[in-house]
Amino acid sequence: MLVAMAFISVATTTARQVLDSQDIGLDCAERARLAPQVAAVVAQLRGRTFPDLDLVADAMRLHKRTLQRLLNREGTSLSAIVDEARQLEAHRYLTGTALSLNQISELLGLSSQSAFTRCGHRWWGRPPSAIRATAFRARVAAPQ
């Protein structure tokens, strides 16, 4: 428990330092485009896992309910933004590395390879192995 609290404290401090260095503020004009800012914060805070609502809201100096409400007005949510980040990262791993599907599922913070396969069907309409095979065929067929 103490280790988890120390990790959260360090992560929060790191998030504040990152955002302070970039001077991310939320004036009226920027609130209309909050989702891309949240996606950038999620990418910056990405470590072994994807950040949760509390960490992202704290990093953006918003109450978590305010962040939820603002994202809802834009027709999205933190879970949708994290899911999109996972999808992009998964595609990059599948097409640019030789990591096993199990290793990729672990890197994405998914509970198992079968969870990754279900996500692949939801994201691309086919399993991750098919995405990898298509990328491999495209590399082999590309003229040298």
Results as ranks from 00 to 15, higher is better:
Met1Arg: 11
Ala6Tyr: 04
Ala6Asp: 04
Val10Ala: 05
Ala15Gly: 12
Arg16Thr: 11
Gln17Leu: 14
Leu19Ser: 04
Leu19Met: 07
Leu19Ile: 04
Gln22Ser: 14
Ile24Gly: 01
Gly25Arg: 15
Gly25Asp: 15
Asp27Tyr: 05
Ala32Asp: 13
Leu34Val: 00
Ala35Gly: 03
Ala35Pro: 01
Ala35Gln: 04
Pro36Tyr: 02
Gln37Asn: 14
Gln37Lys: 14
Ala40Ile: 09
Val41Ile: 03
Val42Gly: 00
Val42Ile: 02
Ala43Gly: 10
Gln44Asn: 11
Arg46Gly: 07
Gly47Thr: 10
Gly47Gln: 08
Gly47Trp: 12
Arg48Leu: 09
Phe50Ala: 02
Phe50Arg: 01
Pro51Tyr: 06
Pro51Gln: 07
Leu53Lys: 04
Asp54Leu: 06
Asp54Gln: 13
Asp54Tyr: 12
Asp54Phe: 11
Asp54Trp: 06
Leu55Ile: 07
Leu55Phe: 06
Leu55Glu: 08
Val56Tyr: 02
Val56Gly: 03
Ala57Arg: 03
Ala57Met: 07
Ala57Asn: 05
Asp58Trp: 00
Arg61Gln: 09
Leu62Arg: 09
Leu62Gln: 10
Lys64Tyr: 12
Thr66Pro: 03
Leu67Val: 08
Leu67Asn: 03
Gln68Asp: 09
Arg69Ala: 12
Leu70Ser: 12
Leu70Ala: 10
Leu70Gln: 09
Asn72Ile: 11
Asn72Pro: 06
Asn72Val: 12
Glu74Ala: 04
Glu74Asp: 00
Gly75Gln: 01
Gly75Val: 01
Gly75Ser: 03
Gly75Leu: 02
Thr76Trp: 05
Ser77Asp: 11
Ser77Ala: 10
Ser79Trp: 08
Ala80Asp: 13
Ile81Trp: 03
Ile81Cys: 02
Val82Ala: 04
Arg86Val: 03
Leu88Cys: 09
Ala90Ile: 08
Ala90Pro: 05
His91Ala: 08
His91Cys: 13
Tyr93Ala: 00
Tyr93Asp: 01
Leu94Asp: 02
Gly96Cys: 15
Thr97Gly: 04
Thr97Tyr: 05
Leu99His: 13
Leu99Thr: 08
Ser100Glu: 05
Ser100Ala: 09
Ser100Thr: 14
Ser100Pro: 03
Asn102Phe: 14
Gln103His: 12
Gln103Ile: 07
Ile104Gly: 00
Glu106Phe: 12
Leu107Asn: 10
Leu108Ser: 04
Leu110Trp: 08
Leu110Ala: 05
Ser111Tyr: 13
Ser112Leu: 01
Ser112Arg: 02
Ser114Leu: 10
Ala115Ile: 05
Phe116Val: 05
Phe116Asp: 04
Arg118Cys: 11
Arg118Thr: 14
Cys119Thr: 08
Cys119Ser: 12
Gly120Glu: 02
Gly120Gln: 00
His121Pro: 02
Arg122Cys: 05
Pro127Cys: 09
Pro127Ser: 12
Ala130Glu: 11
Ile131Val: 15
Thr134Lys: 15
Phe136Ser: 13
Arg137Ile: 03
Ala138Glu: 08
Ala138Cys: 07
Ala138Asn: 06
Ala138Thr: 07
Pro143Lys: 13
